[in-house]
Structure formats: structure tokens, C-alpha cells
């Protein structure tokens, strides 16, 4: 076991992939000489050369589009999109080309791209640097979407993503970049939990609390805090946002009868909406209360002095848990519909 920060874990995963497969190439802005604006790719150009760790001109559509061509040629490109809010110029290539190429060619052409996207807020950034665009990609058939919450998953799931023959959007919780954890770097990949699997990260009996990426830590903190009130929260880390592995969620909700989902992204048609719908379909007779969503608001990401209001925090999550338990502390608006 080695103690690594989340950025170091991603770096180690990239290094391992570059070592193991000569067809792995990295493309992105500032990833070479600088080592990435978050230093995630630090040292990789020096060790693997500028032909494998490629500083590209500033054009996101071209980063994705040339990666499509490289994949056509048999390469396994790993693209870095510098910030979440910069992915939109590459959106057409992702949605119209990367996601559809395999089905368009009836399996003849594979698109084993990994697209790394630092995402989410909480770091005091200007506009376009704190967004949570994952639902756009979850809605796009042909893509896989994953988000690790800790260094071990960051390392293992990145390697799994690069090895996967489907295109994978890999959302990095950038405000957890400096979180440290023990990472087993030499465990065989085949024995690891599949990247598509969700996982119960804290057992509990009263409420099932589902999250992913940056808010898993907050959810775990909320579970600890709730024990003071005698409330037992089971925390589930989705890990894979597309497809979602529902089996652990369904089993959990059938035990607890209550579901809270929390994410930074806005509420309308976010992950929480889909999870609430599916769990309602599959657990209707087990639910003691309506599923509760604790999310960012349906607003453009606000200036950083306001982000503490936008981002779900420990107290808002516990407020949601209380609502699921039928003892709301605050106005929910639900009664207004009567």
C-alpha cells in the first residue's frame, strides 16, 4: 500500500497504462511540459516522450476529434479536458462521433477513448471552472460515465476505463484532488471491483443515501454526524453513473425504506431524477416516504462567493435525511401542491 493523493493516484494510473500498452497516448492542453494545470500528468511527458504525452493546440473539438482518428488507427487515447466548463466545444465530437462510431459501424470500429474531466465546484474558481455536466453524457447512449470518490478508486477505475473498449467519460472530483488515501497499486486489475459497480461505503439501517464523486465524502461525514441523533445512514457510492448498478441500491432501499440522493449538479433531469424514478419503480412497496433529492439549484454555476449556498453540504444533506424520515425542519414546498 502507498499513500497517494487523488491527483497522484490518477498520475500513477496514467503512468501504469502508458507502461503497459504502447497504444495509449495522452492528449490535452498543458499536459506535457507543465504537467497539467492540476499537475495530474506531472512528469509523464519527460518519461514517455512528447509523442505519447501530447500538448495540443487549444481546441477541445480537435482534441476529441483527432482522438477518434487515432482510435480508428488502433490507438487508445486518453484526452484531458482542462475544466468541466470547457468540454462543450468538444460536445459534438463526443455525442455524434465517439458515442456512435461503434454502433454506426456495426462493431467494426471501436472507440476506446478515455476522456478525463476535472469537475465540480468548491474551489473558489471563476465562471466555467466548477460545473457538473455529467448528466449530458449519462443521457448519451454509447458512452460510459464514471466518477471515483477516493484515491484507490481513482487509480483502479482509470486503469479500467483505459482498458475498456467503450468510450469512458471519467469525471474527477477536483475539490478532492488533494485528499490522501492508501492505494494498492499492484493488485491485479481482474480482481478489482468492476468499474461499473456501485458500492456501499457505510452500512446503515434507517436511510439510504446515494452520491458520487466529490459529495461521497460529505455524505460519509453526514452519516457520522447523524449517529449523534440516533439515525443510521447507509451511504452508497455510485462510482458508475452510466450504466448505474442498481442492485446494491435496490437492496439497500428495500432494507431502509427511505432514499436520499445528493449531487452538485442541478436538480432537473439530474442523476437524482433518474435514480428516484428507477427506485420508485423497483421498490414502490418498500418505500416509507418519497425519495428526496439534495442537489445544486437549477441555476448557472454562481460566483464563488455564492457557491456555498449552491453546493449541498453536510447540513443540507441531513435536512434531506430528516425529510425522508418524515420530520422536515424546513420549508420543502411539497405542501404547496395540495
Amino acid at each position: 500500500m502507498t499513500t497517494l493523493s487523488l491527483t497522484q493516484a490518477i498520475n500513477a494510473g496514467l503512468r501504469r497504462a502508458l507502461e503497459e500498452d504502447p497504444k495509449v497516448v495522452l492528449l490535452g492542453e498543458d499536459i506535457g511540459t507543465l504537467g497539467g494545470v492540476f499537475r495530474v500528468t506531472d512528469g509523464l511527458m519527460k518519461d514517455f516522450g512528447s509523442h505519447r504525452v501530447i500538448d495540443t493546440p487549444l481546441a477541445e473539438s480537435a482534441i476529441i476529434g483527432t482522438a477518434v482518428g487515432l482510435a480508428y488507427r488502433g490507438y487508445r487515447p486518453v484526452c484531458e479536458i482542462q475544466f468541466d466548463g470547457f468540454i462543450y466545444p468538444g460536445f459534438d465530437q463526443i455525442v455524434s462521433q465517439v458515442a456512435k462510431m461503434h454502433v454506426r459501424t456495426q462493431g467494426a470500429v471501436r472507440m476506446p477513448l478515455t476522456i478525463r474531466v476535472p469537475f465540480g465546484g468548491g474551489i473558489g474558481s471563476p465562471e466555467h471552472h466548477s460545473e457538473s455536466p455529467e448528466a449530458y453524457f449519462v443521457h448519451t447512449s454509447g458512452l460510459r460515465v464514471i466518477s471515483p470518490s477516493n484515491p484507490q478508486d481513482a487509480y483502479t477505475m482509470l486503469r479500467q476505463a483505459i482498458a475498456c473498449d467503450d468510450p469512458v467519460l471519467y469525471f474527477e472530483p477536483k475539490r478532492r484532488y488533494h485528499a490522501k488515501g492508501e492505494v494498492e497499486v499492484d493488485a491485479p486489475l481482474v480482481q478489482a471491483l468492476p468499474m461499473g459497480a456501485s458500492r456501499i461505503v457505510a452500512a446503515g439501517t434507517d436511510v439510504s443515501l446515494v452520491s458520487y464523486g466529490p459529495l461521497v465524502k460529505t455524505a460519509l461525514d453526514a452519516a457520522i454526524a447523524a449517529t449523534a441523533d440516533g439515525v443510521s445512514i447507509e451511504v452508497i457510492d455510485l462510482r458508475s453513473l452510466s450504466p448505474i448498478d442498481y442492485a446494491p441500491l435496490v437492496a439497500s432501499v428495500r432494507r431502509t425504506g427511505r432514499l436520499v440522493i445528493t449531487h452538485e449538479a442541478g436538480r432537473t433531469l439530474g442523476l437524482g431524477a433518474e435514480i428516484a424514478a428507477v427506485i420508485t419503480e423497483r421498490c414502490f412497496n418498500y418505500l416509507e416516504s418519497a425519495p428526496v433529492r439534495v442537489t445544486g439549484f437549477d441555476i448557472p454555476y454562481p460566483p464563488s462567493k455564492l457557491e456555498k449556498h449552491h453546493l449541498p453540504d453536510l447540513d443540507r444533506i441531513l435536512d434531506g435525511v430528516d425529510r425522508a424520515l418524515g420530520r422536515p425542519n424546513s420549508h420543502t414546498g411539497m405542501d404547496d401542491w395540495a
Binding site: 476529434g65 483527432t66 482518428g69 488507427r73
Partner: peptide, 18 residues
């Protein structure tokens, strides 16, 4: 998609160089 393939050709050509 108009023009999208020019990027694919460019990427493929970059692969030929590699």
C-alpha cells in the same frame, strides 16, 4: 455531420506518423 471527418483524418494521420 459537416466537417467532423476532417478531424478524424487528421488524428488518423497523426497515428500514421506515430
Amino acid at each position: 455531420i459537416i466537417g467532423a471527418q476532417t478531424l478524424h483524418a487528421t488524428g488518423y494521420a497523426m497515428g500514421l506518423t506515430l
